[in-house]
Design a protein around this nucleic acid. Sequence first.
DNA 1: CGCGACGTTGATTTGCCTCAACGATTGTGG
DNA 2: CCACAATCGTTGAGGCAAATCAACGTCGCG
Lengths: 196, 196
Amino acid sequence: MEITPLKNYIQTNVDFSEAELDTFCSYFTQKTVSKKDFLLKQGNICRFEGFVIKGCFRLFSLDKEGRENVLYFAIKNWWVTDIDSFTNQKPAHLSIQALEDSEILLINKTNKDRLYTELPKVEQLFRIMTQKTLVSLQRRLIRNHSDSAQERYDHFVTTYPEINQKITDRQVAAYLGITHEFVSKIRNKRMQKKIE
Amino acid sequence: MEITPLKNYIQTNVDFSEAELDTFCSYFTQKTVSKKDFLLKQGNICRFEGFVIKGCFRLFSLDKEGRENVLYFAIKNWWVTDIDSFTNQKPAHLSIQALEDSEILLINKTNKDRLYTELPKVEQLFRIMTQKTLVSLQRRLIRNHSDSAQERYDHFVTTYPEINQKITDRQVAAYLGITHEFVSKIRNKRMQKKIE
DNA sequence: CGCGACGTTGATTTGCCTCAACGATTGTGG
DNA sequence: CCACAATCGTTGAGGCAAATCAACGTCGCG
């Protein structure tokens, strides 16, 4: 099992001993997910929290018009779960799908609860992680209000070049909350500017 | 000092003994804030985390065109801080201003760090709080993509009637990311529908 | 009282969407 | 391995939701 990326990730956030790292990782299992396969479907109960090793996932939800709104993409070193569904074991708002053949480490609810009691520092780890996620989501929300579609697209491709190269323009559009046709028009304007 | 609301709030989230509750609350100080006063200004370092007892606050940031984007409003039982600025003691993206004469309980960084070490359960409390906030922010982001201005306005006034009655339409507009003129037009359409 | 902030309304503009058609690329079953 | 289907990105014409700009009466407050 490929636990090195997970260990490295933890060490960037909190101070764990080698033994603690091992305990932490021992509760995870590795899973291979093929392109287009779903880890979770809207309405089902989310039984896992996942740490991506390889590949790419999208987390999205369907609105009443049947449109797919992407909450975020997850590549290596990102976590995927429907937090609300996972922590309260109730139907998920989100779907999670692989956009490439992927590898992921999973932990289930029982084992995560065990981790919380066995290693109190795990509380701190997830508090810090969640805080960081919250801050970036707050900034994204504000950007959605203050920036144009053009600016939001530019921000995305410069902030997440690695993600951008893995996904289609349609997916970027679903993330930015604009149409894929408009993304195409934005890209053309960008090309022109770069030539000028 | 009015600590009962804070104690009640904590008990809805985690299981604290009476002694733990007292320890927790002992690190807070009460402050009176007059209408229009700022608890924090964008660019300054946020020295506190606050629990609102009475009144109303807005958390907002200025964009490059000088427009005020409201992240959220806080009335009694809500928390206010610029998490990133507070935890990392760096300049704030947000400003926090009282919209009414208000009462608030504050804790500074030193004392919050003490709390984390003295009462390990505090980690859990703030992890859970942050998770809940994150979930609601995720939903709000998705709604901003899938719902019209009309629908977002309706959602706001039905979800937060208590907040709505305390603030002006201009503030609601800044929260929803639309103009105050358009809010006015939306309200008229609503009135017509209710008469029909 | 007078001033500033507020809500309202209308005319006009615009950023982005919708719908439709097209070729290019990718994926797939026979 | 190829034929065909599906999905993709592109482009254009037209439309609409919401923004902009401007003017107005009202209200609370200093």
